[in-house]
């Protein structure tokens, strides 16, 4: 995988196309929050006329202002992948097509960012909140449930309420990395009372 800067991105893609790697395979994005404060854009192209390994081009963009040049002028099929990355991660492709590919035009949010909270689910009863041996509605027996020694489960996509949603008013809003880390699902810290 070749790592390039955002300034070199377009030129590197053009160079790959000229070198015979003119078959576009895919373009994707990775939210690297928690490791580095950036999005990684990955482009994979192939050379169909030679038995060569596919070439991967990668570029890191700052999370607070992710912009990169479009490569749809080089690989026409990349336009669809760029539109998908643009709406799911909120990455701006300069010179790319602005219209949405998958999501409703009215939809707000960047659903594949790891700090994106599934807000509608925070107010719903999660069936998995019950412990084995527990009946009725979750929380019916109080926050302790049938196994008070175990920490409470939260579903993936819904952060620990202590971090997001039910955060102490005097604390500043949680950093995106903290929200992302706590929204992975699993058992959460005991509530301090």
């Amino acid at each position: 995988m070749t790592e390039v800067s955002p300034q070199e991105w377009l030129a590197a893609a053009v160079a790959l196309g000229r070198a015979g790697f003119d078959y576009f395979d895919w373009l994707g994005c990775v939210d690297e929050i928690g490791r580095r404060d950036c999005f990684r854009i990955v482009l994979v192209v192939r050379n169909l006329s030679a038995a060569a390994e596919p070439r991967m081009l990668s570029c890191s963009l700052p999370r607070d202002d992710p912009r990169i040049q479009t490569v749809r002028g080089v690989f026409a099929g990349a336009g669809w992948h760029e539109r998908e990355v643009a709406e799911l991660f909120g990455v701006e492709f300069l010179g790319g097509e602005a219209s949405r590919l998958l999501l409703n035009p009215e939809f707000e949010g960047r659903p594949l960012r790891k700090d994106e909270v599934l807000a509608a689910r925070t107010g719903m009863n999660w069936p998995g909140a019950k412990e084995p041996g527990e009946g009725g509605n979750p929380g019916e027996r109080g926050e302790e449930g049938v196994s008070p020694s175990r920490r409470r489960m939260v579903p993936p996509g819904v952060p620990d309420p202590v971090v997001w949603g039910d955060r102490d008013a005097w604390r500043p809003a949680a950093a995106p990395a903290e929200v992302a880390e706590s929204a992975g699902g699993g058992r959460v810290r005991r509530r301090r009372t």
């Binding site: 069936p127 998995g128 019950k130 412990e131 527990e134 489960m153």
Partner: peptide, 18 residues
């Protein structure tokens, strides 16, 4: 409860007692 927790659609409901 593993199936109810893994279900991405939240469609499995389980009641049990000991």
């Amino acid at each position: 409860m593993i199936c109810a927790r893994e279900c991405p659609s939240w469609c499995i409901s389980i009641d049990s007692h000991t």
